[in-house]
Design a protein around this nucleic acid. Structure first.
Length: 579
RNA sequence: CGGGGUGUAGCGCAGCUUGGCUAGCGCACUUGAAUGGGGUUCAAGUGGUCGGAGGUUCAAAUCCUCUCACCCCGACCA
């Protein structure tokens, strides 16, 4: 591509809408442009990166035995009603109507469609296993889109779906995908780590996320400092502590004006952890819950939603609390006045002999409350968030450390959730109908691209890993008015094209500084600089974006030298760490 | 959804408090000249129904009402 003819427009100034560096660089480098909140256009440079990432994904998926298809993204509501997700998916689902007022959705994911496809064609265990994937634009109406492609509403995703006859088969399919994912991210030049995850509204049991570690990541993850355990905070299991405290009688005490745990415990001169706070929520089905967690703990809404079978938990507002016959700041499980509200108690409170809890009466708390003796929850469950420096639930030796990550891939074992609800059955060896066991495997293509920028940049711009760079080589002519240099560069450019090299040729009549700065911003890994300073000695300069190294090369040997460099850069990526 | 903020040229902004002639500035863009290995310089230009609708007024970018869009924070201790 000749720069002078290209649709590449870089911006000098920082972009106001960008709050993280990768977003700013993609906008300034002319990779993407915003059309609406969470909705982006991919400009030529951006699309080239998208294609390179997609191709790596495609190659590795194919190699793992998956087959590419392309599913419709406008989907009839009927399928979503069948899978029960028409109601369960919530407001992230973009619903649309056709002229006949029939309901459709713009697909946020394709479990329903792929299950429908497979049930139409596959009737026998002999046809299993099968793995179908696509690279497709999706739409999820996010509460709050941000960080450019990191959390966009419209986004490109690779999603794969495996179908197996039995659990062993599913395990094999899942492991193949995990292997493929490691290959994909390492070929993209990314350092990723897989963590145990919650499967969210997609459903299913085992699930792992692939995280690009980054302080700007939206996910909080914990890792053990002594074993291999790592998990998303939403999922990380909490272990029960045997810190019973001494038993005492239940006693009501006045705590006038003391509503927060901190105030109450200070006032009563008691430790936060020997108190229980009560948090009131409702779910999408208008079921009400009172969650009890230790005073200095935080409720983990994801865990809470899971144990209550809720899609979405919403905190009750003050009015709803009052209407339920409760008193804000004085809510507790003892003599709980409302039978319609289920009490869910965190496991950590199981062994406590004595707790400070609200008395359900303005200005009063109980002290000395004990589980089973003084109150009876509807359910005991792990509903708290783990904290830093806590004992690892896996090895019970190390302690947990918090870090942040960008989720670029997610793999799940779905099991028969969709195949059962959608009657997707096959006949097994014995002629018995059975639901398919499914797995589902996603990669955010745009997010991977942006995560790569987040992980590889400096103050001047992007430093693309060669495998996903928009071009592998940039040829910069510093003297477009010299006939001799122009002839040489034009010639070199055509030669490289003929040899299938991926090159951007900056032939613009611009000053050197402009070209260098644009080149730094755009971040193409290898640079050939032709200027009269070296040309008089029959030399051109070869430099690398990643470390700004420079070497002079005879002008007639340049193609071979660049080829070598390209190979070197690719082999560096192949050697990259695999966690 | 709650709170805060911003909409003025392609991008970044000033002007608004206290209404007043032709609405400015930087970057970008066009033309010319000089320059030519790290965003160079000079000169002359192009480009705006001031987000939209309504209202107040002799007069509205500026004041009022409504509306749309976008950004940030939150939706963790009741």
């Amino acid at each position: 591509m000749r720069y002078s003819e290209s649709f590449i427009y870089t911006l000098k100034e920082e972009q106001k809408e960008a709050s993280i560096v990768s977003h700013d660089l993609l906008l300034r480098g002319g990779f993407i442009s915003k059309l609406a909140s969470g909705i982006y256009n991919y400009l030529p440079l951006g699309l080239r990166v998208i294609r390179k990432v997609s191709n790596i994904v495609r190659e590795e998926m194919n190699r793992a035995g998956a087959q590419e298809i392309l599913m419709a993204n406008i989907q009839p509501a009927q399928l979503w009603i069948e899978s029960k997700r028409w109601n369960d998916y919530g407001s992230e689902l973009l619903r649309i109507k056709d002229r006949g007022e029939r309901d459709f959705v713009f697909g946020p994911t394709h479990e329903e469609v792929v299950t429908d496809i497979v049930r139409r064609f596959i009737k026998s265990y002999r046809d299993l296993p099968i793995n179908l994937y696509q690279i497709q634009t999706k739409f999820r109406d996010e509460i709050r889109p941000r960080f450019g492609l990191m959390r966009a509403r419209e986004f490109i995703m690779k999603d794969a779906y495996s179908f197996d006859a039995d659990q062993d088969g599913l395990d094999i399919s899942y492991n193949k995908m995990r292997e493929a994912y490691y290959n994909i991210f390492s070929r993209c030049g990314l350092k990723v780590r897989s963590v145990q995850a919650d499967s969210g509204s997609i459903g299913g049991r085992d699930s792992e996320e692939f995280m690009v570690l980054s302080s700007t990541g939206e996910d909080e993850i914990v890792t053990c400092d002594s074993c291999r355990f790592s998990a998303n905070m939403e999922k990380a299991e909490s272990i029960t502590m045997d810190d019973a405290g001494s038993e005492m009688d239940l006693k009501k005490v006045a705590t006038p004006g003391k509503q927060t745990i901190k105030d109450v415990c200070e006032y009563l001169n008691s430790d936060d952890k020997f108190s229980a706070k009560a948090l009131l929520y409702k779910n999408e089905k208008d079921e009400f819950f009172c969650f009890l967690v230790e005073g200095d703990d935080e409720l983990n809404e994801t865990k809470a939603a899971r144990v209550t079978g809720s899609v979405e938990l919403i905190k009750l507002n003050d009015e709803e609390i009052r209407a339920s016959g409760l008193h804000k700041g004085y809510i507790g499980p003892v003599n709980f006045p409302n039978k319609n509200i289920k009490i869910i108690c965190d496991e950590r409170l199981r062994n406590r002999n004595s707790l400070v809890v609200g008395a359900n009466e303005e200005g009063y708390h109980y002290v000395g409350a004990k589980l089973h003796r003084d109150f009876e929850p509807d359910l005991m469950a792990d509903i708290r968030s783990v904290k830093e420096n806590e004992i690892c639930p896996e090895c019970r030796k190390g302690v947990l450390k918090k870090t942040r990550g960008i989720e670029v891939g997610h793999i799940f074992k779905l099991g028969s959730k969709y195949s059962e609800s959608m009657h997707a059955l096959f006949l097994d060896r014995n002629g018995k109908p059975k639901p398919f066991l499914m797995g589902c495997y996603g990669i955010g293509i745009g997010r991977t691209m942006q995560a790569a920028v987040e992980q590889n940049n400096d103050k001047n711009g992007i430093i693309w890993p060669i495998s996903i760079a928009p071009f592998e080589v940039e040829l910069i002519s510093l003297d477009t008015r010299s006939e001799e240099i122009k002839r040489y560069c034009d010639n070199l450019y055509t030669t490289m094209l003929k040899r299938d090299m991926d090159v951007l040729y900056d032939d613009r009549d611009e000053r050197a500084g402009v070209k260098f700065n644009d080149a730094d911003l755009i971040g193409i890994p290898i640079r050939i600089i032709v200027g009269k300073k070296n040309f008089v000695n029959n030399q051109v300069e070869l430099s690398l974006r990643q470390n700004n190294s420079r070497q002079l090369v005879n002008k007639d040997d340049i193609v071979e030298n660049v080829k070598e460099l390209i190979n070197e850069l690719y082999s560096e990526i192949d050697k990259g760490d695999k966690i």
